[in-house]
Amino acid sequence: MTRITAWRRHPLARYAVLILALALVGMVYAAFVQVGKPADAALAAGKVDDVAEGKSLFIQHCGSCHGMSAQGTGTAPTLIGVGAAAVDFQMSTGRMPAAAPGPQAPRKPPANWVNETTTRQIAAYVQSLGGGPQVPGHEQVDPAMGDAGKGGELFRANCIQCHNWAGAGGALTQGKYAPNLNSSTPTQIYEAMITGPQAMPVFNDTTITPEEKRSMIAYITQVREQRDPGGFGLGRIGPVTEGLVAFVVGIAALVLAAIWITAKKRQKS
């Protein structure tokens, strides 16, 4: 007992107990988190059976770039922890599988083997690897449940620097660009905000709440349906096209007017 008492009174004893307690808590937490994790993640993204089917599809179509275990390679990043929402966004917009490496994967028609089922299966497999943002439900992205006015304020504060006030997109640096949002579905817009594809930052629920995201979707879908009663919209790109048209049309009109006036004067003389 004397030896135990002496050890307990040692100056380092309290630190040893603290380290032991933290290690024990970590082991218990890891045990509870890992149990049933793949199944829970698969259920969140689709069906439990989708994981096996998704793994087979992933190895066949995605493993050559992302690695057979989605660990990433020099060609493509790791997909561990990106979540089902990222997979659904990339595959539903045709960005993945990519046709060729480049600064940014463009939107294109999905590959012939990509459909709702195969997308869900690969998303379930990736979700089972390390969790991550899940595909949003209908109520989360329904524009009718959002406030377009509030969404417009949020969009102008966070998005117009890249996407333009009307979501027409714009050029960025190093060959990248903010895509046009007119072809994006409400689900794809929400997924882009929570996953941050390519050059886009991630807007998590702390930065922009789910209700605010839904309001931004309401604004984007409302603006794309508006007409341009004042004339040609010129792609709604902004002062670049407007200035070009003003210069070309305006200068051309002035040149033609000057030629016409001088021609009249020559005829009189």
Rank of each mutant, 00 (worst) to 15 (best):
W260V: 14
Q90Y: 12
L18F: 13
A148T: 06
Q188K: 02
R8I: 15
H163C: 13
Y29N: 08
G151Y: 03
D147V: 07
T173A: 14
A100K: 13
P186W: 02
H163A: 09
I261A: 15
I220R: 01
A76W: 04
M96I: 04
A148V: 06
V141Q: 02
G63I: 05
P201K: 10
G74I: 10
R214L: 12
V141M: 01
V248N: 06
D147L: 04
V240E: 11
G54S: 07
A178Q: 06
Y190S: 06
E225R: 07
K37Q: 12
R8A: 11
Q222I: 00
V255D: 01
I80G: 05
Q267G: 07
I237R: 09
L79H: 06
R9M: 09
A31M: 12
Q34L: 13
C65M: 12
T173E: 12
Q226W: 12
Q127F: 01
I19Y: 09
A76T: 04
Q140F: 04
Q127R: 07
T185F: 09
T119K: 03
E211W: 00
F155Y: 15
D50S: 05
A166R: 04
F155P: 07
V17Q: 12
P133H: 00
L20A: 15
Q198C: 09
W260E: 05
G151M: 01
A23F: 13
P109N: 12
Y15C: 03
A263P: 07
V17G: 06
Q198S: 14
T173N: 10
I251E: 06
T5L: 15
A258D: 11
P229S: 01
M68W: 14
R236P: 03
A13H: 05
Q267D: 04
Q134T: 15
K37T: 00
P97N: 05
W7S: 11
K55Q: 12
L79S: 00
G169S: 06
T78A: 15
